[in-house]
Computed example of a mutant assay.
Amino acid sequence: MAGDSGRALGNAEQWLDLVAASALSGPSRQLAANVAFVGYAHGVLRLALAPGFEYLRSERAVGDLEQALSASLGQTPKIVIETGAADAETLHERADRQRGERQSAAETIFMDNPEVQLLVQQHGARVVPDSIRPFEE
Rank of each mutant, 00 (worst) to 15 (best):
M111S: 10
A20E: 11
A71T: 11
A23E: 13
R29M: 05
D87R: 09
H42T: 12
I109Q: 11
A95W: 08
A68N: 07
N34Y: 00
E54W: 00
L49N: 02
R99G: 14
Q67H: 09
S25A: 15
V38Y: 03
R57S: 15
V128G: 03
R60A: 12
L73K: 05
E137S: 15
G3Y: 13
E93T: 01
R7W: 09
W15D: 02
A68C: 10
Q14G: 15
G84P: 01
G52Y: 01
L31I: 07
G100I: 05
Q98G: 04
S22Q: 03
G84V: 00
E93M: 05
G6F: 07
R29K: 09
S28L: 08
Q14N: 11
H42Q: 14
F110N: 13
A85M: 01
V116Q: 00
N113W: 03
V116T: 09
A20S: 12
P134H: 04
H92I: 05
N11R: 09
G124M: 08
E82N: 06
V35M: 00
E93Y: 02
A12V: 07
P129H: 12
E101T: 06
A8H: 10
G10D: 14
L91T: 01
A85T: 03
G26M: 08
G63R: 00
E101W: 14
D17K: 15
V80C: 05
Y40Q: 05
G74L: 04
P27T: 09
I81A: 05
E66W: 00
E59W: 08
L24K: 03
L119I: 04
G6K: 08
A23T: 12
A41W: 05
R57I: 12
T108M: 10
A71I: 08
A36G: 06
H92W: 06
A88P: 03
R97K: 11
F53Y: 13
A88C: 06
S70L: 07
L45P: 02
D17W: 08
E13P: 05
R97H: 13
A32T: 07
P114L: 07
A86W: 01
Q67K: 13
F53N: 15
M111K: 13
H92M: 13
E59L: 09
Q121H: 12
P51V: 00
Q98A: 12
S25W: 13
A106Y: 02
S28I: 11
E54R: 01
D4I: 14
A8M: 10
Q14K: 15
L24P: 02
K78Q: 14
T108K: 13
K78A: 13
K78P: 06
D112H: 06
R133H: 15
G43P: 06
G52A: 11
G3L: 12
L49F: 04
Q14S: 14
P134S: 06
R94N: 03
A68Q: 10
M111G: 04
S25L: 11
S58Q: 09
D17A: 15
S22H: 01
T90M: 06
T90N: 00
V127T: 11
G26H: 04
R94H: 01
G52T: 02
G100P: 00
Q98D: 10
G6M: 13
P134R: 08
V62I: 11
L118I: 08
G74C: 01
G63Y: 06
V80M: 02
A125T: 07
W15C: 01
E137Y: 15
G84I: 04
A8W: 02
V80A: 02
E136A: 12
F135Y: 12
L47R: 00
L31G: 01
I79H: 01
D112R: 07
N11C: 14
L118R: 14
G74A: 04
D64M: 07
